[in-house]
Write a protein that binds this DNA or RNA. Structure first.
Lengths: 114, 114
DNA sequence: CTTTTAATTAACTGATTAGTTAAATACATT
DNA sequence: AATGTATTTAACTAATCAGTTAATTAAAAG
């Protein structure tokens, strides 16, 4: 994976469960248990996803009695956003919106993608 | 990793060698051999990194005699950019620039990071 | 003080990753 | 036709990942 900040962030984002967790936390603070419920996955599995997100500085876990109060640290995404932004100028010429792009790739490779 | 588009893109970006390759390609089309030179890594290793980037639709490889002409497909980053952009509003309040954020985290956790 | 609740850590398994060297492919050059 | 060049594929290894169940920790509640 690489141990630098950007690698950790992008790696954390490369899993659908972890992205979903971030989306849930965008709705406000939640306990580890709350975060487990929407997934058909054991609590330890979620716990380790939370650790990955925490180490990437994308969330924060505060101990509150036997609960872990998890909250989003959206500013943790800034390095990733900044890295990607280097490339915006390249695509801005040809595609003005994501929809443009998605239509374009659907037109071409019409395989069973997402 | 997950097999959906976003997972593939973020996973591709989670490796420093692959990010470096994209940066090299931002300077213009290069052969697989050209791309190998800056790295202390075998050609097959680079070849597989290129495959990961190609499958994530971040680069294109065209066959030209015994060369593979690799070029950046920056628009492949659009889905990632779009996903991250959901969170911009959250950090925009507190941090206006990446530097603000980097200074902030240096101030606090002054451990041996990166 | 015993039980219940919330969550993590430990130990394990199977799959995937990132690298290696050696072999194969494909085209260019002589 | 034989050799050299560019690159990928094959086969292998060591490390990491994502999940599981069982055990542990820590605090709340009775």
């Amino acid at each position: 994976m690489g141990t630098d900040t950007l690698s950790q962030i992008f790696f954390a984002l490369s899993d659908p469960t972890r992205r979903k967790i971030l989306e849930l936390l965008a709705g406000g603070e939640k306990s580890a248990g709350d975060l487990s419920k929407p997934f058909s996955m054991s609590a330890p599995a979620i716990s380790r996803h939370l650790k990955v997100l925490e180490q990437a500085a994308l969330i924060e876990r505060k101990v509150d009695a036997q609960w872990r109060r998890c909250s989003l640290k959206p500013e943790g995404l800034m390095p990733a956003d900044n890295w990607v932004s280097q490339y915006r100028k390249f695509w801005a010429d040809r595609f003005s919106t994501l929809d443009d792009y998605l239509k374009d790739i659907q037109k071409k490779g019409s395989s069973t993608d997402e």
